[in-house]
Design a protein around this nucleic acid. Structure first.
Lengths: 219, 219
DNA sequence: GGAAGGTAAAAACGCGCGTTTCAAACGCCA
DNA sequence: TGGCGTTTGAAACGCGCGTTTTTACCTTCC
């Protein structure tokens, strides 16, 4: 076995604990104890806690980026020359997101990690992700631009991040939502179900009319 | 002076540091050093770090909840008996949000804190906020229900949280966005400007068509 | 003036953290 | 089989943390 299963056990345990409690609140001791490996194994195999965090992300994002790339290849060849419809583009994106964790762990962990990457990464993690996957992101943005030619560039930039906020915030805070919605709407709370409800909202948001010309219209 | 300015200085410094780096990553030592007060002052005046965190939130949320209540009072009397329009409701909400930090510190800090409350509060903070401000939230939800009678209750519940995700995620991650959008769209990056762009997207999202009846339509 | 009480300052405590060290165990190939 | 590089194990290190304690200050009221 080329890769010791110590490494795998550490990653499997770390991603769950990180998703549950965040990075700073998760100690290497809690990871190694639950993973039933020695404390020093993390520093031996990964070098540092920071590097472990990056490795956890890489294990999700590497396959995701690859899938997204091939999905965009397909789309571009299918609609060769003509504009890719927004619906198709978003569906492929959802597809790529849904496929990756199926072969690994829960989609919820993946989403939680994405949320953490935004909210907790003051430094190294955001730099790492941007350096590693910025190109993929740029390619998606380029496709989105073709799919929404009616939007000014700045407006599309905003709305893309509004959309990311909607999806990541909702899916990563899913169990917080479960707490709030006490036993009322809980029957529909699977991640897949949520994505079904998200789609029309996201599409409508991207297609919303442009904001009025300001004029400081408040009050 | 009834309330020593030590308390104020601690709160002023703590909210900035919390917003910048999160709760776990902000030590009492860094707070008290920057605030130029003694380390023990936090435990003396607040009792614990947890209690300090709650006090930071209370200083924003207490005035906010009060303003929202009076805003809803006005709306209900203005549209007495009839349905409150969705636009008016959302505008009042935005109003209430925008007014509070104007008399204190930056809106960005407020939004960052809200984001942290969602993503970092595994326990005490979420319970505190829900216990303290749950009633206000419920009242807003009731108004929203009247404003969107066409939505099933479950769907409205979802979309409300989609909307919260969009707004909080975007505004709390604003400087992350500033990093990404390097020098292209930065001229429009004030919080007020962002809210202007958010509004049509949020309204369109709330008014989006209901999701299709599933049928596991993927692929 | 002096006791009392709320506040501030300084120092220490115990703890859990990430990391390092070093020796033991293991797997592999000559 | 013997030696060697790789991996594991146990223990310790130094550090920074939240908190507590102790002492000093400084107002307030009799």
């Amino acid at each position: 076995m080329a890769q010791s299963d110590t490494v795998t056990r550490i990653l499997d345990t770390a991603e769950v604990l990180f998703a549950e409690k965040g990075f700073a609140e998760t100690s290497l001791r809690s990871i190694t104890t639950r993973a039933k490996v020695n404390l020093a194994a993390v520093n031996y195999h990964f070098g540092s806690k920071k590097a472990l965090i990056q490795a956890v992300f890489a294990r999700y994002l590497d396959p995701f980026a690859e899938r997204l790339h091939t999905a965009l290849d397909e789309l571009e060849s299918r609609y060769a020359g003509t504009a890719i419809p927004l619906d198709a583009l978003l569906e492929q994106l959802a597809h790529s997101v849904l496929e990756v964790p199926a072969e690994r762990h829960s989609l919820q962990v993946f989403m939680k990690l994405l949320g953490l990457a935004y909210s907790q990464a003051q430094g190294h993690l955001r730099r790492y992700i941007q350096a590693q996957y910025g190109e993929t992101f740029q390619r998606f943005v380029a496709c989105l631009r073709i799919a929404t030619p009616e939007l000014p560039d700045a407006e599309r930039f905003w709305r893309l991040h509004f959309m990311l906020g909607t999806v990541i915030f909702t899916l990563s805070g899913l169990d917080a939502l479960r707490d709030i919605a006490d036993h009322e709407y809980q029957q529909h709370m699977s991640v897949r179900e949520l994505i079904r409800h998200l789609r029309p909202v996201v599409v409508a948001g991207m297609r919303a009319p442009l904001p009025e010309d300001d004029g400081s219209a408040l009050s």
